[in-house]
Design a protein around this nucleic acid. Sequence first.
DNA 1: TAATTCATGGACTCACGGGTACAATAATGA
DNA 2: TCATTATTGTACCCGTGAGTCCATGAATTA
Lengths: 220, 220
Amino acid sequence: MPSDMAAQQGRKQGPGRPKDEEKRKAILDAACRQFLENGIAATRVDRIASEAGVSKMTVYAHFGDKAGLFAASVRSRTETLAEALADLPDPPADLRRALITYGTAFVLFLRSPDVLRLDLILATEAATHPEIAAAFYESGPGVVLGTVTGILRQACERGMIRLPDVDKAADSLVASWCHGPDWIAQRLALRGPPTREEAQERVQRSVDWFLAAHAVKPQD
Amino acid sequence: MPSDMAAQQGRKQGPGRPKDEEKRKAILDAACRQFLENGIAATRVDRIASEAGVSKMTVYAHFGDKAGLFAASVRSRTETLAEALADLPDPPADLRRALITYGTAFVLFLRSPDVLRLDLILATEAATHPEIAAAFYESGPGVVLGTVTGILRQACERGMIRLPDVDKAADSLVASWCHGPDWIAQRLALRGPPTREEAQERVQRSVDWFLAAHAVKPQD
DNA sequence: TAATTCATGGACTCACGGGTACAATAATGA
DNA sequence: TCATTATTGTACCCGTGAGTCCATGAATTA
């Protein structure tokens, strides 16, 4: 990622001691933890520095100011999460099984505490950091939506189901998997994340509705 | 609401000048606006006071401190919103029409900027103000879920549809109405609230799936 | 009228935390 | 070795904003 280096360092490795990449990583790591745990306002730069085992001046040397540190750390976190999403196995050929497999993975992903916190912070900060919010959407929910849309579109082309509007159908289907009142309750700390069984059961139910309503050939 | 008075004032109207209820209202009003707009940390008590046309001391006399002010203002806002939800018209007899009518109202409600902000702030603050979060859930999402569950249960009893688990079905159905990636995009300020037409179209689609999949009489 | 409580506004205290200054030291390229 | 840049620790500056103090005046009950 050379563009990243250019954007972050801005200097071509002139003479003198180079910046320590390990320290940079450590700072980003600590910053992620702190920002996710406390939000922007309540996070102390001093604490990040000490947790990273680094002096405060080093933090400012690498990232300029608190906002820059936030942006960089969220960006790195977003990339990490996006990789996790990209690592899903190939979809089974069977449509129903493909939807259930992916759906369960998505639910577990989208309701993991880290993603929940990240979503929360970015939603709070969307007004002041629109590019970050957009990047998060693209590499998180956008990927989920795109994958499901692809699966559905393919199934339509193969004549397995019939959908008047694939995009909207995908949106509603994903919604029915992930974001019910039950999910709201988790956001409000009224319950924990679902177990794998709960997630799967929930997705299976939605998928079965969906297929029952849209399948071309008669089924039960 | 006498319990409210007792909790807030604590004194039985002794001698001397009584507290001005209008000022109290004005303070709450300004506080709601500010907290919804900026969140807790970024809200300035001075600003609330000046916007309410009141001295800062008066704010502290009425609400003790910033946290108390926040709690009181969110409570009042939650009550207001709950009233809006309670004001919905009686459900039409027709099941499909009832679901669509309520669903559209819910979507417009849950995606209104105010509710979105409130949800966001409470989710952020859930750890430090669990009772407030719980109260919000009860009078917001909880009411929606309860209403839909009621409608579905009745329909089951009348033999119009068949559902193995009414509660979970209601959760998924509500989710498919409200909280797709499209909604996430709105939270991230990537799009605005849906129009009435969009909301209705979306709900209608979900309801039709649902009924197609669960109707007792033969379907295609 | 007297006693009591509320409200005002402005000045004030005080803790907190972002960001900087500086002097010393370490690592690197030339 | 020399110039250059990174890093450190500590001490510091300084804006900000929550919460308080106080002297004055207004509303209310007895």
